[in-house]
Nucleic acid binder design. Structure first.
Lengths: 234, 234
DNA sequence: CAACTTATTTTTGTATGCAAAATATTGTTT
DNA sequence: AAACAATATTTTGCATACAAAAATAAGTTG
């Protein structure tokens, strides 16, 4: 009788013990990255708050947080929209991301433990398996894990955070990508070389490879953005 | 009137007019960067809201925004504190900042107009003047302007934003720095070379110089952080 | 019926209220 | 007096209330 929020879609039950506001941030980020909230769509506070099982106050705080990450844009007196996915923006992101990954690769070659490298190799083989089976989603999953691991091996939390923030934009683009087998194979081949460079701790080479790899990735995204969007995403 | 609200692309262009919530963000950021709110000090919502002439709600939103920038840290159920200024963190920031500035330098050598370069040279001479007179605050002002201009000349807004976010941490450290004349002279000398490389549009060299310059800057900050803080900064 | 006005509804932005958690204070016991 | 326990105060976190602005609908006039 005193709990008004006992709605059906009570996602807050997922909240462990503490951290409630961060839950909303993560949920909202996922909705955007996963593409459930499409680029440039308006974020209706009342609707979203209800969907996430909270009130407008924490939701607005989450929106501000994500605005700083660049995933949403704030329009004065008009609320917020999901940040648009413009080709120009993607080019910019990939250039910066390339520099960050190159740096991370170099640092990782110095700082990674043998166990780190072994784990990355293991993830690499998982990825190869899913590539062989043509399982795109699973491939992406391991691909991301590999890149994340390399970043983490650099041992620079600030670098990792900057990378994650920018990488969210890239993840977002992936969900509308129709990956050609040719590009896919090329990406896998690049990964092979990257792993080799990492195992040999050849920082300079890994750096260069990561830069090239990012260029290839950008090309994929640009193709995807160029192809007329099939309106079937709902 | 004649506002074409229906066109899809101008949603964001209209946005940049006036922001009321961003006022609080900017004020709070300044308080932190300027050092008026010292590292690790607690952000009392009631007190701060009163100080900024608003209520707790917009203040909390601003805090969340700055938390994403890394200037404040959120403690669950304990509010927020100004992010600590740890040497380890500074090292990380400078490494990433070095990579970003190096990238920017390279891009700037390609993209800057002659007018851009002329302006940067002009700022450089202003800076030299203030260095000659030993006017540290004014020196810093022009120094920042030069670096900001170089970043902007890269023509990559995403790069610029990432840089600004990280640079805020550096700005913060400067206010407690007792700069030795020796280091100061060295920094100026490095700037001389950087301008030269930019004028000659030697991207590779500017890139390398910026990296070295950042290392020198880091050394300054580390010295400052090592010296016992005189608690008289108010 | 198009265009412009005016009224209605919706949505945002900010302030306030309230419960839970954390912090500070007081009190008690050894 | 120190250490612990209990109580009171403060502070945070979330929900709600309300005013201003925007979006939408309805009405009016040429």
């Amino acid at each position: 009788m005193d709990i008004p929020a006992a709605t059906a879609t009570n996602v807050t039950s997922l909240a462990e013990r503490r951290l409630l506001h961060e839950t909303v941030v993560d949920q909202l980020r996922d909705l955007i990255v996963q593409g459930e909230l499409t680029p440039e769509s308006k974020l209706n506070e009342r609707v979203l708050a209800e969907k996430l099982g909270t009130s407008r106050t924490p939701l607005r705080e989450a929106i501000k947080f994500l605005a700083s990450e660049g995933l949403v844009e704030l329009l004065p007196n008009r609320g917020a929209v999901v940040a648009p996915l413009k080709p120009e923006k993607m080019k910019e992101v990939f250039v910066v991301l390339g520099a960050l990954e190159a740096l991370a690769g170099d640092l990782a070659c110095r700082n990674a433990t043998e166990a780190d490298i072994a784990e990355i190799r293991a993830l690499h083989y998982h990825m190869l398996a899913h590539h062989a089976r043509g399982e795109l989603a699973q491939y992406f999953r391991y691909n991301q894990q590999i890149h994340t691991r390399i970043i983490d091996c650099a041992g620079n939390a600030t670098l990792a955070q900057s990378w994650r923030s920018l990488n969210a934009h890239v993840k977002r683009a992936r969900y509308l990508a129709n990956l050609s087998r040719e590009r896919w194979d090329k990406a896998v081949k690049e990964h092979e070389e990257m792993i080799d460079a990492l195992v040999k701790r050849d920082g300079a080479r890994l750096q260069a490879l990561l830069r090239d790899h990012l260029s290839n990735k950008l090309a994929m995204v640009m193709e995807a953005l160029a192809t007329p969007r099939t309106g079937a995403e709902r």
